[in-house]
């Protein structure tokens, strides 16, 4: 029997070695997943009928120039060699004849603007993070709050209103609501600022003001999902036997609701939130284009439309990493919420 940890009353601590082993295993798994994803992007990119060298070469293009462009873009070699070079660049850096040294982790140079992919991504990432985190705060507060309220007032008018409203909200489209919201709140009523991005470090107030409309619009759709999920989870948990036991112990409806039912409803919400946040960190394409915010979403769209493989790879990798990392976080949090879940 392993030595017992001293636990504070009512709170369980995960065995540190188990936790460590869990993290190591999941990180290794994540690395494998990223490897597969990047390889897939490579293959898919070359499966596309367009030749990036032919596009970069211009209108008057001799076979000699084309070969040179190929070499310059680093796509003259066979696919596995290219992939290997790219992979190696990640860890040890890479030498380019036309650009010089690219230090590790090197994601290569963009075909399009001839800039290091990494610096472009780092430049765009804060916008995407701001969008993701800000809207998460909004939709978590409103979604879970409304869902709880609907669960308390189950079957009553408030519940029906909240449920119908969330159904309508979830069928909205960002590009419609976004334009409408900008027109109404910004152009007509002058209540909010036009969407723009100011770095948080520069001016937090301007940062928030400029992102408020995108946050509200993006969270509208998520709020609806979280409302419905919270409501159904709460209603389900409230019918559990242990909730009845809690009532039989003399605990009030309120205590039962917030101490017992809430706990049971949290698990699935945490799971979905982890996935949603991971996805949002990969770039909210439609929201970013609706509000012309220069985040990863727009960057990836542009990379696809301009056949910019290094850029596309970089964005996909960041997006995949975000999802994978949040998956691991979700699993760890899950183990904290539910003692029956073992990190084994």
């Amino acid at each position: 029997m392993p030595p017992r940890l001293l636990t504070p009353y009512g709170i369980r601590q995960e065995n540190p070695t188990a936790m460590f082993r869990f993290l190591v295993r999941r990180t290794l798994g994540a690395a494998v997943i990223m490897l597969i994803i990047s390889a897939l992007v490579f293959v898919l990119f070359y499966a596309a009928p367009r030749d990036p060298a032919r596009i970069a070469c211009g209108k008057v293009c001799t076979p000699e120039t084309l070969a040179l462009v190929r070499k310059n873009l680093g796509i003259a070699d066979p696919l596995p060699v290219q992939y290997w070079e790219w992979l190696k660049g990640l860890f040890v850096g890479r030498e380019y004849t036309s650009f010089g040294h690219c230090p590790a982790p090197c994601l290569g140079y963009s075909f399009q603007n001839r800039e290091p992919v990494l610096s472009t991504i780092l430049d765009r990432f804060p916008t995407t993070i701001s969008l993701a985190i800000g809207s998460s705060v909004v939709f978590l507060i409103f979604g879970i709050g409304t869902g709880m309220l609907a669960a308390v007032k189950q079957g009553k008018t408030l519940d029906k209103v909240a449920s119908s409203a969330s159904l309508i909200a979830s069928s909205m489209q960002i590009y419609v609501v976004g334009i409408f919201a900008t027109y109404l709140l910004v152009d007509q009523l002058h209540l909010l600022d036009r969407a723009n991005y100011t770095p948080f470090t520069e001016d937090p107030a301007k940062w928030a003001a400029g992102l408020l409309v995108p946050w509200l619009v993006l969270s509208l759709i998520f709020t609806a999902n979280y409302t419905r999920m919270t409501r159904s989870q709460m209603v389900e948990t409230l019918s559990e036997d242990y909730v009845r036991t809690a009532r039989a112990k003399g605990l009030s409806r309120r205590t039962v609701f917030f101490r017992f039912a809430w706990r049971g409803a949290m698990g699935p919400i945490v799971t979905i939130f982890g996935l949603d946040l991971g996805t949002l960190l990969g770039g909210a394409i439609i929201t970013e284009s609706t509000f012309s915010l220069q985040g990863l979403g727009l960057l990836s769209v542009k990379a696809v439309s301009t056949n910019d493989l290094p850029m596309l790879l970089g964005v996909v990798l960041v997006a995949a990493a975000a999802i994978v990392v949040f998956n691991i976080i979700v699993d760890s949090v899950y183990a904290l919420i539910d003692p029956r879940v073992r990190l084994a």
Binding site: G10, R12, Y242, T245, A248, K249, L251, G264
Partner: peptide
């Protein structure tokens, strides 16, 4: 609420389902 758990209390059939999985026995 004052009486439940205090003057009168109840034992249920399925103890696993009837105990909260999220809290220690204590």
């Amino acid at each position: 609420e004052e009486l439940r758990g205090n003057t009168m209390s109840m034992i249920f059939q399925d103890a696993l389902a009837s105990l909260s999985p999220y809290h220690t026995i204590g």
